[in-house]
Every structure is written in C-alpha cells, then in structure tokens.
Design a protein around this nucleic acid. Structure first.
Length: 263
DNA sequence: AATATTGTTCAGCA
DNA sequence: GTGCTGAACAATAT
C-alpha cells in the first residue's frame, strides 16, 4: 500500500529490524523485480554487505549499504518489506529475500510484481534522473514552494497532486483524502484556486500524511473523519448525509462526496 | 467470468 | 511544454 506515509512506515520498520546486520545471502526469487543489473550481480554485491541506514524520497526507499552502491526499493502497488525468522511466516509473494547472519530475513514482498529493486551509486543523481519534484515530507516542500509549483498549472487538482514530477509522495488514495479534507472537488482546475484555497490544501497534505503515518506506525485506525475508512461507491460521507461517488480523473478512480466537495 | 486495483512509463493527440 | 487518455506491466481479489 505504498504511498508516502506507507513508505515512511516501511522505513521505520526496516530501521527497527534490518540495520547493522551482515547479509549472508541475497536470494532472488523473481528476476523481474531487479532493474538496472542482473540478478547475479545484484546478489553478488549485497552478499557480505550491511545496511547502515535508510532514507526515503517520495515513494522510493533507500537502504544505504557499507559498499559503494545503495539499494533502492520501489513497492509498486502492492509491495511491502517483511522481516521474519521462521520459514512458515514467509509470505507467498516474496520476490527477494535478504538472509542476515543472525538467522532473520528481510523479504521484499510484492504480489503484483510491479515493485522494483535497484542498486545505485548516487541517490541525488537517481532522483534527478527520475525528475521527481520535492518530497512532500521534506523541509524542501514548504508552503511557498507549493504555491509556486501550482502557479503554472491549469489541469485538474487531483492530477497535479499525484504528479510525482511536481511533488513526490502522493498517490491515488492520499489525494482522495487530501481533497476530501479540503472539501474540494477532484476535478477542480488548479488555475481557478485562490491563494487561501491553495494554502489550505497545503495544510491538508501535511495533516493527511502525518495522520496516516501515525496510524501506521502505532497500528491505529484512521480517524472517523477520514474518507479512506470507507472509500467505496455508495458509502456514507463521514461528514454529511451524502454518499460517496466514484469518478475517473486522469485514468485513475477517485472517490469523493459530491455534496461536500464542490468544483 | 469480467472487472477493479494503492504505481510508473510511454505513446499519441489536442 | 502542458494536459489528457489509454495502454502495458502482472497478479490477485471480488
């Protein structure tokens, strides 16, 4: 479930389980998830390495190794890291497994096979190459930056929020929640938004990301005021008597309350 | 059985 | 260059 809050949660998960342990073996179960290099080179490099720290940028998770290359994980639509010891706890969809010398293992799990593992030499260059916008959880993404980014936009707000080249981290579900919290229609044109509306939107991005992350990290349910709790057609709006409707924006399915969220 | 799905990337067209 | 659509990628769940 990897949008930025999930990726940050995964970062915390990996930090608390998989750092500072020597990798005895890097097992590749599906070659398809390895990009940039061969499965053989990938395994060979990681054997004997140790993950020293983790960081993220947008939906990408970086595991910094003791060697001259770092591991990048991208989870696609259904990926997740799973730390375990006993084989019977192993997930069905592990595509790669890092075996640590203490007997524990970290699996790169991804049912849909849309996830990617990559070895890179330079994180900055990697980000530049992907042409990612500022990470929405970083200091770089301040309110003025957000206003500037939206300044030249003319399309629909939901599409802009999800555009990784504009700002990195918001996916389909988060964008629905942000727009619901701001009580804004997904198809609202960005150039029709005034400064107050944009500033409010910025605050909601921050709130949704922080709330989401807090719930994931502490295994809590989302607040009842969130549309993500009942994100399906015909569900009750958390705030009014309306029902949730489905809409297609930029080829993705969005859910919103037509009564609360106006154009 | 048909359809939908949390992401990315590319092609085509206005 | 921007914006929008559709497709491909692949597997699973309903």
């Amino acid at each position: 479930m990897p949008e930025l809050p999930e990726v940050l949660h995964f970062k915390h998960y990996v930090e608390s389980t998989s750092l500072n342990q020597s990798i005895g073996k890097a097992e590749i179960l599906s070659d398809k998830v390895i990009s940039n290099t061969t499965a053989e080179d990938f395994s060979k490099f990681l054997k004997g390495q140790t993950f020293k720290s983790a960081s993220n940028y947008g939906k990408y998770l970086f595991l910094h190794s003791t060697g001259d290359r770092d591991l990048v994980m991208h989870f696609g639509m259904t990926g997740q890291p799973v730390y375990f010891k006993n084989e019977h706890k192993q997930q069905d969809y592990a595509r790669a497994i890092f075996h640590f010398e203490n007997g524990f293992k970290l699996a790169f799990d991804c049912a849909q096979m849309l996830g990617k593992l990559e070895l890179i030499e330079d994180k900055k260059a990697f980000i530049q190459n992907k042409e990612l916008g500022p990470d929405i959880s970083s200091d770089e993404f301040d309110e003025e930056t957000f206003l500037e980014l939206m300044d030249s936009r003319r399309g629909m707000i939901k599409s802009s929020l999800m555009d990784q080249n504009l700002m990195a981290g918001i996916g389909n579900e988060c964008s629905d929640e942000i727009l619901f919290q701001a009580r804004m229609h997904p198809k609202k044109k960005v150039n029709e938004l005034n400064e107050d509306e944009l500033r409010n939107l910025y605050d909601k991005i921050d709130m949704v990301v922080k709330t989401n992350l807090d719930c994931l990290d502490h295994d809590k349910e989302l607040p009842d005021s969130f549309i993500l709790k009942e994100r399906s057609e015909g569900a009750d709006c958390p705030d009014c008597v309306g029902t949730i409707a489905k809409i297609t924006v930029g080829g993705r399915s969005g859910y919103f309350c037509p009564q609360c969220q106006h154009k």
